[in-house]
Design a protein around this nucleic acid. Structure first.
Lengths: 162, 162
DNA sequence: ACTGAAAGACACAGACT
DNA sequence: AGTCTGTGTCTTTCAGT
């Protein structure tokens, strides 16, 4: 008999797993040896636990965060928009287009008066204006668009395990 | 004699630096050896370039992205708020409080009708309600608060170098 | 599920071009 | 600014508890 359907397969993480995740969250390039010392285990079980968490999908990705201002990506804009029609096909087409846009580093579907929230990076205001008019504006089915400019980044954490 | 003051020290990144960043962005745990092979260099200059980019701050941090749904952090909320007074002291006090709140994984100062945009993670709606009333609501100087619920994450990229 | 040992791979520093 | 080479350290596998 089949097990009950779950949205996410839960691999039952223990305290050691969470301790390992806490360390990896803060520094993805930490060595397994250093983790082992901090969680008071030899490197073998730490290695195996990380491998398991990568496989089950608890660990999604190891990424490097870069300084936008030093890479000509100093402007960040939050961009809200509605679609004119909300059919599955229309939504999928919009999503497919957004996925290919490198400047769009985040896209969320949200509650409220707008359908989507985009986080867009650009070199400056001219570049953003170009994106707004010539790239967003070219997508069919896009209704209202509203831009909110980010004046400062106070906090940016990626820690889901405290 | 002192050098002229710059907001960001520009280390003049060349194509090789950008290629290295592109690889590190996608996988922070990639080995230097593997990078060297892909950029057609020996490991010594790659090692030195990475060290320099870490030091100058182009590389900010290596982080591990985890699956929120598997860690009882399935709910994401965008929370907008205004402060009642906008003095430097009042703002700093608010920021200090936000910094200590683990559930707040992002905080931006924004243009428009609100002062701040917060990204908050919670286990479920009850937990978020508790955060809203007992944690945010307890901070003095907070004026209007508006919550927008994230229904789906379409895209989440951290790539500033394409 | 863990330890400890051992082999292989890698990082890192030095000498040199 | 790069290659090559050596040494020490880390990863990864395996036998054993």
């Amino acid at each position: 008999m089949a097990k009950s359907i779950k949205t996410e397969e839960m691999p039952a993480l223990d305290k050691t797993d969470l301790a390992i995740l806490r360390l990896l969250q803060q520094n993805a390039r930490i060595t397994i040896k250093e983790i082992s010392e901090k969680v008071h285990l030899s490197s073998t079980p730490v290695h195996e636990r990380i491998r398991r968490m990568e496989e089950t999908g608890v660990i999604k990705q190891y990424v490097t965060l870069l300084n936008g201002a030093m890479l000509k990506k100093g402007l960040m804009v939050i961009c809200y928009l509605t679609l004119r029609q909300h059919s599955k096909a229309a939504g999928d087409k919009f999503i497919k287009t957004i996925m290919q846009m490198d400047e769009v580093i985040e896209c969320l579907t949200i509650s409220g008066q707008f359908d989507f929230m985009l986080k867009v990076v650009a070199e400056n205001m001219d570049a953003y204006y170009d994106f707004h008019v010539n790239r967003l504006g070219q997508i069919e089915n896009v209704g209202n668009v509203q831009s909110v400019f980010v004046m400062g980044v106070i906090k940016q954490s990626h820690q889901l395990v405290f």
